[in-house]
């Protein structure tokens, strides 16, 4: 069997966001990186790999997105698939999920898909459940821990009111959160070894998909950068001046009436 891990190439969060004229993210602009939250997914996929199994890292994106797969290979994935097609520029979550689901099918013997809990740029967090529904598989989302036993996947989920254990039958899609353990940093040896692992580049037709419909769904009509806060009043604490400034601000907004 095979574990597929879905990875996304995103602009470096430290770089300013560049939007193209059509208000889409300019994905060719900056250097980009593997989405920080997908590192957890790669790490879990590699950890869950059973004997004689392989981990296949799949990405959808422009040519440069191959870097996300390369990083996944360095972190221990065995093979990569890059789905690149001009027709996919600006793809919405539904199109993205359809492409990833088709890539999973193309692998043939996958029984587990691991995803990050959301991308760090788009951030809606719904791609994993959409991939699951398109495949007709179970989805166990937002796992803080994942285990496989027999034909089932067991996850721990940290909800606001309780820590829950959930079980789903395989095949399944799992998304993992940043509570799932810090990803291991690849060694130099692992980085060299990754160069020899195969990466397949495919277009939509190779996955048996047509051009995504351009039916008018959602349309972003404006994008503006948030105003920065005006410069702060700075108080260097000495002899209680810091606490005094803090309490004054709270009192000025009637937030110190302790017996409220």
């Amino acid at each position: 069997m095979t574990i597929v891990v879905c990875v996304k190439h995103v602009p470096d969060p430290a770089d300013p966001v560049v939007l193209a004229a059509d208000l889409r993210v300019d994905r060719e602009a900056g250097a980009g990186t593997l989405s920080g939250l997908d590192e957890y997914a790669v790490d879990q996929a590699v950890r869950l790999r059973r004997a004689r199994e392989r981990v296949v890292a799949v990405t959808m994106g422009p040519r440069g997105a191959r870097a996300a797969v390369t990083r996944a290979l360095q972190m221990g994935a065995d093979e990569g698939i890059v789905v690149s097609d001009e027709a996919l520029a600006g793809a919405d979550v539904l199109t993205t999920a359809a492409v990833l689901a088709a890539a999973v099918r193309s692998v043939g013997d996958a029984d587990l898909v691991v995803c990050g809990m959301s991308s760090t740029d788009g951030g809606s967090g719904v791609v994993p459940v959409l991939v699951a529904d398109l495949l007709g598989w179970a989805c166990a989302g937002h796992a803080a821990a994942v285990e496989l036993d027999g034909g089932r996947v067991t996850i721990q989920r940290d909800d606001p009111d309780a820590r829950r254990t959930l079980v789903a039958p395989l095949p399944a899609v799992v998304s993992v959160t940043d509570l799932s353990g810090e990803p291991t940093y690849p060694s130099f040896k692992a980085i060299l070894a990754a160069r020899r692992r195969p990466v397949r580049e495919v277009g939509l037709s190779e996955l048996g998909l047509g051009t995504p419909s351009t039916a008018p769904g959602t349309r972003t009509v404006s994008a503006v950068e948030a105003d920065p806060r005006p410069p702060a009043r700075i108080v260097t604490d000495s002899d209680g001046s810091g606490a005094a400034a803090l309490l004054e601000l709270l009192a000025g907004r009637s937030l110190l009436e302790v017996d409220r």
């Binding site: 806060r229 009043r233 700075i234 810091g242 606490a243 400034a245 803090l246």
Partner: peptide, 23 residues
């Protein structure tokens, strides 16, 4: 300090202890 309205440069333990005492 570039994303706040009031910036207190100081040790949080001192500032909060002072604030607790004053309240």
């Amino acid at each position: 300090f570039r994303a706040c309205d009031l910036g207190i440069v100081g040790d949080l333990h001192t500032v909060l202890a002072d604030a607790v005492a004053a309240v």
